[in-house]
């Protein structure tokens, strides 16, 4: 699989609840810009450039560490994917759960992809690198609004 660093200078918005995930993802991202927000409501403030986020960069890719059995997390995903200003930005859900119910829930709320976070750290890094390579180097992304 791909181990090279992904395209430089991409803007990634990461919602992560734990320092461990931030550390793994930052290790995997290399030269890309990763902006980290730690709480659900802040993701929307970032995208809407509200309050302290008035100069927030428009991300190329959004990574959301979510628990789809939690209503707030579902609400966040559906708000992003229904907003005409940023629904087109690809959202990759990173989740601990492998339950079919959660996976279906994510796709029914229009997540672009669902990744089960591997428990092994090196495997986790590899999966994030593969994700960044796929989205930033291979996929065509929509122009930023």
């Amino acid at each position: 699989m791909h181990t090279e660093a992904p395209t430089a200078a991409a803007e990634i918005l990461l919602l992560a609840q734990h320092d461990y995930d931030v550390a793994v993802i930052k290790r995997a991202t290399g030269a890309s810009y990763v902006n980290v927000v730690a709480k659900c409501p802040n993701v929307l403030s970032w995208l809407r450039r509200q309050g302290e986020y008035d100069r927030a960069a428009r991300p190329d890719l959004i990574l959301l560490d979510l628990d789809l059995s939690n209503d707030d997390d579902c609400e966040l995903l559906s708000e992003i994917k229904e907003d005409p200003d940023f629904k087109r930005i690809p959202v990759v859900v990173l989740a601990s759960s492998e339950s079919h119910e959660n996976i279906f829930q994510a796709y029914s709320l229009n997540a672009n992809a669902y990744i089960c976070k591997p428990t092994d750290r090196e495997e986790y890094v590899r999966v994030i690198r593969a994700t960044l390579h796929f989205w930033l180097a291979l996929a065509k992304l929509p122009r930023k609004l």
């Binding site: 699989m1 996976i103 796709y107 593969a130």
Partner: peptide, 10 residues
């Protein structure tokens, strides 16, 4: 590689 190896499909 990505969609059948990395991503969890429904």
């Amino acid at each position: 590689d990505y969609w059948m190896g990395c991503v969890a499909l429904p």
